[in-house]
Design a protein around this nucleic acid. Sequence first.
DNA 1: CGTTGGGTTGAGCGCTCTCAAGTATTGTGG
DNA 2: CCACAATACTTGAGAGCGCTCAACCCAACG
Lengths: 248, 248
Amino acid sequence: MPNDNAVIAPQDCADCPIRHRAVCARCEADELDALEQIKYYRSFEAGQTVVWAGDRMDFVGSVVSGIATLTQAMEDGRTQMVGLLLPSDFVGRPGRDGAAYDVVATTDLVMCCFRKQPFEKMMVSTPHISHRLLEMTLDELDAAREWMLVLGRKTAREKIASLLSIVARRDATLKLDTVDGPLVFDLPLTREAMADYLGLTLETVSRQISALKRDGVIHLEGKRHVTVPDFSRLMEEAGDDSDGGMLA
Amino acid sequence: MPNDNAVIAPQDCADCPIRHRAVCARCEADELDALEQIKYYRSFEAGQTVVWAGDRMDFVGSVVSGIATLTQAMEDGRTQMVGLLLPSDFVGRPGRDGAAYDVVATTDLVMCCFRKQPFEKMMVSTPHISHRLLEMTLDELDAAREWMLVLGRKTAREKIASLLSIVARRDATLKLDTVDGPLVFDLPLTREAMADYLGLTLETVSRQISALKRDGVIHLEGKRHVTVPDFSRLMEEAGDDSDGGMLA
DNA sequence: CGTTGGGTTGAGCGCTCTCAAGTATTGTGG
DNA sequence: CCACAATACTTGAGAGCGCTCAACCCAACG
């Protein structure tokens, strides 16, 4: 069990890759200094569980790099992913002791954590933090509601196309890519994780990915490396109107 | 078209039925006075649309009485309900011009509205408001994620039982009922609206309600009046563990 | 090499959808 | 008061999509 929950060396907030998108985005220099006092980094290996649902959670924090998932499970084992946490996304809920969901690192993961008590105090004294958190929470709520449409009403093929277009879009914004050319990216999730996100079985995920490949909507190299020659085609397959969501 | 979007007589916040649960819950007397300056009431009849997705929305507000729904539609007509708005729930998003979803009154509805500009100014100057809004938004996000499990992983029968237990629970807390005895309530939704909430067809909703009735999980008088003789039985049918959520 | 984890593909089944007919209730006009 | 329509709901029959179960492929790794 190497390097478990490793605490890594502190880093200057000014150099932080998520400085202008995370919960601290709106903070002034002096506010950042205060945050810097209570922050610490933790890193996790792909596959590690960050927190278990129901466990006490004495910190909150931001994803700095890597990807984590929020999942919910029924007693009989059925599992639904309820959140995909990307760099700058916030983990934990101020004002609550226990974690509501399992948080799992699906890739190697670095988090910038704050002990909960001091963070909650800072929220009261620092409107920049709580306003930014409100804004981020409203965005997450919108994303969750978008996803409810996917889960409730889309076909398996549309679900896969929806997931691919979300990952493609995120990747494009990270890389500041132009939207026109072919998009190329790696799937950050296993077939099983995709199934848990989409409310499908992994076999159905595999079949529909094969079908999209057969129909030329995507190209695959290996299992994870995806090329999307025509993004608007993918959007059609997702059942969204062709250019609705590229702005944001 | 009688009484369309009627503006009704102002009411004192002190007497407001949602005074201690809405976005104003944490406000002091002087803050309430300020809110009172910018508030106005609007009422809607069952079936009326409050706002259309994409339309400019120049107000935000709280549901005072009645029930509204948030729904999202695809071009081909498939529809997914993404929110069920009960008294004290908040409508609208500060910092955004357009409505993201259709808001429809499913029963007669009274809303306490605030013009958006003044409300946004008050949010900045009144932490009690933005903190309460953050708290409510986090609760809604949790509810949305719970619902993702229902949509993604539950069977039709479990979906119906989940909806019934949510309505029953809400009704019990409103009436401050004891939890033990049989629960009695009216369904606030048509079969079609239930179908849109659950990601089912209305026929499947009807069949599963009949099945739960046949199996003695519920009793029906007419189409809408429901009696639940044994709540824990209903929870089992919903696939939740028997007593997880009664506290909150 | 054998093992393991992730992925693909096939065959058959069943849950939910689609299409369709029928019931109950309410409101409307003659 | 009745005929009629409209709305909400129920129930049936058949079809299809996605699930289950199972075999198999492939790359990484010891």
